[in-house]
Structures are given as structure tokens and as C-alpha cells.
Design a protein around this nucleic acid. Structure first.
Lengths: 334, 334
DNA sequence: AAAATTCACGGGAACGTTCCCGGGAACGTT
DNA sequence: AACGTTCCCGGGAACGTTCCCGTGAATTTT
């Protein structure tokens, strides 16, 4: 890999590298004729400026990192699309990283990004993350940071999340209004803020309707289809079978659908299922999934705007939290 | 954003930056005691080496770029997972870029990656890409390159792809064996190699079975659900309605399912649908989608191994093509 | 015609790191 | 005692770019 430098161009034209630099950047103090000469030569020599050298120079990489737990999850890829959409037109590059919900990977990724001197980090926490020192390290370095969706209250920074409590409340209330009485909840790991919020919303809705919160109807699970399926089967094989399940995410709801199918239970007659996210395929599923829609694209967009705000203003005075409203999408599974 | 440098550490300890550098890299010519002093101070000062400066030094960024048309497509995200899985354990960072099938974005992305001095590029072409000069530019710079899935025969480089012809042949043959006679094909844009191959496989299977290839049964479409749905409706509203549709991808097949649903046609009784990819949700769809499985994870893994081969050997002598076999997955839609 | 101003360009430092080379101190060998 | 070796460490160049400053030449002003 042989890259031409401004020095090479300068030598080829018998001028100094300063002049070449000026010509390329279209600075003042440059003769239009010289400029043309330089540009032509640059094109001829297949010149491409070294981003490292430039970043090195004025301490900006013009790069923003997005860290998500998993990329093959439509919710997150929609968020990413929102970020990229907002970034298009600016001269910032978005680089995408996934932690696969593993704390160790998250730590390594952040270390790497710090080393890269990324200009900002937009991230959603891994479900496996307990220790938050790596996030605090980011803050010590005064690196612009936006947490979205999977946030935590143990870190004080800019945040964007859904009203998970309200979404869960609406979902549960909807099930109740449809006449379901024995509603179970497959909830996410409790170290995640969203899991706790959704669980709380579920419990509140039950209590407000005068229904009892039964511990045996609440099982903790990973956000994976397979995992959820296993736990859903447990729920459905209890002596007193729940008549509805509220899944903490659409993937978890999918696990319920698969479990019900395997146990020959009809949806929504034998068992109702409701999810959370509204992934792209929810509508085409068998049955179409009733779910809580999250404005994923908007979240991504807002995250980018928030990070740009921090980068441009430099200061981090006062953190801001944005809570977006969710929407119930009625389909066939409940 | 204030980053400490080895110079800062050197000053704090009253030694030279050379010694600090040696201590951090655990080089020879370093006193264990000094080393410990430096490491402790580095930790205390929250030191993180500048990746730019290092890359700048010995011309390697330890970064490999993956370019895909769209990230929110399970086929590609699986490929990415394959790449990342293979990269885990090495000291290479994978950065992910999406072109959203727009040629201009692809060109800009590649320019940016060249500027970044990425060590290698693994990419799948955008469906909108016609001109290939940006790819040739990569080759002129002798940058390691692997094309996967959406390859082209107009570029001579390392390639990994599926046996699209064979996959399409199998899909069509399967439909024929099930008794379908009037099989249509929603094919992809013809500038894509995979589109042409799959079309050819479809045609060959028809001819081998003594069936006629009818031009009115072949419609070109984008790889998007919505687009495909529109074209599928056209197909299904023809005077002589096809009894089966082979979609060039699962998303296209999904479009067919939606179109059929809207026209109140039963699948697979009124119309059979078969896809290509086997996306994660194919099994849970309504109806479960019969499709051709592509080894996406393997493709990603192989791509990474191939790029590493090029990076380590340096030379690009002789390009290699790997063609992976596909597999028919029988489900309910055909 | 001398002075002031403008124009176009070159030289050199700086960014953070590594690597090569040189050198001093301590040690062991003749 | 003189020499060679080993062990540590420091100085400086280099990577590619930008930016500040200096400097002639050309042009305009006094």
C-alpha cells in the first residue's frame, strides 16, 4: 500500500508542501494557476489525504461511535439508521460497534474508541454490564456521551429513552381490557433500567385493576428468542396456566409464540402474547404481533443531535434527558 | 477532552519519553522498577495511547472495514457477525458501514476509508452501483479487498459468494416437483451478479422441466419489501395468474406474501412463495417461508480469513474465488 | 523615487509515538 | 589499570499535515 503525500506532489511540481496544502484546502494566499496545477497533479497521483495526520494535527477525528448490544436486532438497526440519517450531510463518520451484551466486549470497545480519539460516543448498555467504570472513564476524559434506550441512573449524562413504564402499563392494561385475568410477564435482567421500568409498569397496571401480582408469573430472561422460548414453556406448563404473556421485547414475545406453537396452544385464544418494540416483521408474523411501538429511528436521530450539541458547545454543563412516548399497535396476537 | 501523553508521564516522573514508551510496550532495555513506576503513573493519569500516533508511526491502523448495502437485513448482519466472530481475539477492529444501496454513498464511504488508511476492505456491492472506478481505485492503492455475496465479474479480486445459480435452480425445481406449472420470478436489478445468476438458474430449471420461460412472468424489483409487494401485485393481477412466485430474496418473498394477503389469496394453495436467504424470522412468519439457505455467518468468517491472508502476505498474487453451496429449507409457503 | 502594501510562496514547528543510535555507569575480564 | 560488556536511559528523527511566520517580488500609494 503506497500512498502519495503532499510532499510527493510538491516534489513533482517543484514547489513546497505548504503551497500544496494551501491549494488542496483552497486557502488564501494561493495563485489560482498554482492551485489548478496542484489539483491536477493530486488527481493524477491518486492522492488521498491521511485522515490520521489531519486528526493528529487538530485533535479531531470527525468520527462518532455508536455502540449497541446487537446489530441484528431491528430496533437497534433502526436506531443506527436514525443516527446515520442525521449524520448524512455533516462531515462526521459514524462507526458502529456491537457488544453482543458482553461486559468485557463493551469495556474493550470503549478502550479502543478512547484510543482512537473518537469525538463522541452514542451507546446503549449491554445487558451483561454491571460495573460502570468504563463509562465513568469516558466522562473523566470529558468525552461527549449520549446513552439511549438501555440507560442507567447510575450515570449522570445526556440520555434518550422511551417511557418504558408507561409502555408496559399500556400493554398490560390493554390485555386486562381484553378480558385476560392471569397475565404473566417475561421480564429482562434486572440490572437493566428498562427491565425494571417495564416490570414496574406491568405491576402497576395489575394493581390498578385490582389484580394480584403473582411472583410465579414473573420470570427473568435474556432478550433472545431461544432463551425466551425456554422460559415461556415453563410459564405455560404451570398448573394454573396464564392466559396472557407480556414479553419485555418482541424477540421475547416471539419466543412465547414458538413455545405456544410447540405446546399446541392457539394464539390468542389459549394464550395472548404482547411484545415491546414493533420490529419490522411484527406485522407479517403468524399471528401478527400486538406490541408497543418505540420510536427507534427518532431515538437515533435525537442521539446524534444531542452528541453534536455537546461536541460543538464543548461544555457538558447540565445533562438532559429526553423521554419519548410509546404507542400501542393492535394486531392479532392479543 | 484532555488526553495525557507519554510526555506527560515522562515529565511527572522526571524521565524521558523514550523510557516511558519502552516501559509501556514492555520492551527490552528497561528496568523492572522503572517499568512499574511508569505503569502505575500511566494508570493514575488515565493514560490511553493515541491510536492515530501509533498508526501514523508504522503505517497500520489495525482496522478492517466491512461495507454492506443495508445493516437491517439479517443476511448482512449475520455476515457481519461472522466477520466479527473471526476477528475476535485478533487485534483488528472491525468498522461497519452501510451504503443503503446508493452508489454515491458507496463512493464516499470508500474515499473516507482510504483516507483513514484502513488495512483492508470487505464489501458487498450496492444494488445501485454501476460505475466501478472507486473499486478500481482501491486496487490501484493495493489495498486488500474481498468482495462477498454481491460480487461482480468486472473486478478481479478475492471473492466469496453463494452458488446462486444452483440455489435458484433448486428452488424452481422444488416448485415444479410440487406440481406448480406457471412459476413467476421477481428478480433483482440486472446489474447485480446475483440477480443474473438467480434468474439464469430459474430459467434453466424451467427449461429442463420442459416448461416455457414467459417474459410476462419475470419482473425486476428492488430488494425491498414494499417495492416487491407492488410488483407482486402486478404479477398476481395478470389475466393468467401464476401459481407460484420465486422471489430473488426473502424480503421480496415477504412482499409477495403481503400482496397475496391483500388480494385474499391463500398461500400455498392459491399461490406458492419461495424466497432466498433464510432470514432469522422466516420460520415464524405466516406462513413459515420456504427458502434457500445461504451460509451467511460462514461467508463473513471466510471473508475475514481471506482479508487477513492478504494483509499478512502483503502480496496479492493470484485471486481466489470461493463458491459456497446453498440448501433448500422446506416450510409452509410452497 | 521611496515607502507601503499586497501577493504568493517557503521554512519550520507541532501533534504523539516509535525506533535507531549514542552514551554513561556498573560490572566483569584480561 | 585498561578494556570490553551489559544494562538503562536520553536525544533526535520520522510519519503527513496544518499553521504561523518570514521573505522576496510585484504592485500601489505617497
Amino acid at each position: 500500500m503506497k500512498h502519495t503525500t503532499i510532499k510527493d506532489i510538491a516534489r513533482a511540481l517543484g514547489i513546497s508542501k505548504s503551497t500544496v496544502s494551501r491549494a488542496l484546502r483552497d486557502h488564501y494566499d494561493i495563485n489560482p494557476e498554482t492551485r489548478k496545477l496542484v489539483l491536477d497533479m493530486a488527481a493524477k497521483m491518486n492522492y488521498s489525504p491521511s485522515a490520521q495526520a489531519i486528526a493528529f494535527q487538530h485533535g479531531q477525528t470527525k468520527t462518532i461511535a455508536v455502540i449497541v448490544p446487537e446489530i441484528d436486532n431491528p430496533f437497534f438497526s433502526n436506531c443506527i439508521n436514525g443516527v446515520e440519517n442525521a449524520a448524512a450531510g455533516t462531515d462526521y463518520l459514524i462507526i458502529i460497534n456491537q457488544t453482543r451484551n458482553i461486559e468485557r466486549v463493551e469495556v474493550e470497545t470503549i478502550n479502543r474508541l478512547i484510543s482512537m480519539r473518537v469525538d463522541g460516543v452514542i451507546m446503549s448498555l449491554a445487558s451483561g454490564t454491571v460495573n460502570l467504570n468504563h463509562i465513568k472513564r469516558l466522562q473523566n476524559l470529558e468525552m461527549p456521551l449520549v446513552l439511549f434506550d438501555r440507560v442507567t441512573d447510575r450515570i449522570d449524562c445526556h440520555k434518550i429513552f422511551n417511557d418504558d413504564f408507561e409502555g408496559a402499563y399500556k400493554a398490560t392494561q390493554y390485555l386486562i381490557s381484553k378480558g385476560y385475568q392471569n397475565i404473566a410477564h417475561l421480564c429482562g435482567f434486572k440490572n437493566l433500567h428498562i427491565s425494571r421500568e417495564r416490570l414496574a409498569g406491568y405491576e402497576k397496571a395489575l394493581m390498578d385493576a385490582g389484580l394480584k401480582v403473582k411472583p410465579e408469573n414473573i420470570i427473568e430472561t435474556d432478550f433472545k428468542i431461544r432463551e425466551a422460548k425456554i422460559h415461556a414453556k415453563k410459564l405455560l406448563q404451570q398448573p394454573i396456566r396464564p392466559d396472557a404473556i407480556f414479553g419485555v421485547s418482541d424477540h421475547v414475545a416471539l419466543g412465547c409464540i414458538l413455545a405456544a406453537r410447540e405446546l399446541n396452544l392457539k394464539i390468542p385464544d389459549d394464550i395472548a402474547v404482547i411484545g415491546f418494540s414493533d420490529l419490522t416483521y411484527a406485522e407479517i408474523l403468524n399471528p401478527p404481533l400486538t406490541t408497543i411501538q418505540q420510536p427507534s429511528f427518532e431515538m437515533g436521530k435525537l442521539s446524534f443531535e444531542m452528541i453534536m450539541e455537546q461536541i460543538e458547545q464543548g461544555t457538558q454543563k447540565g445533562t438532559r434527558s429526553v423521554c419519548l412516548k410509546t404507542k400501542l399497535i393492535e394486531r392479532g396476537s392479543a
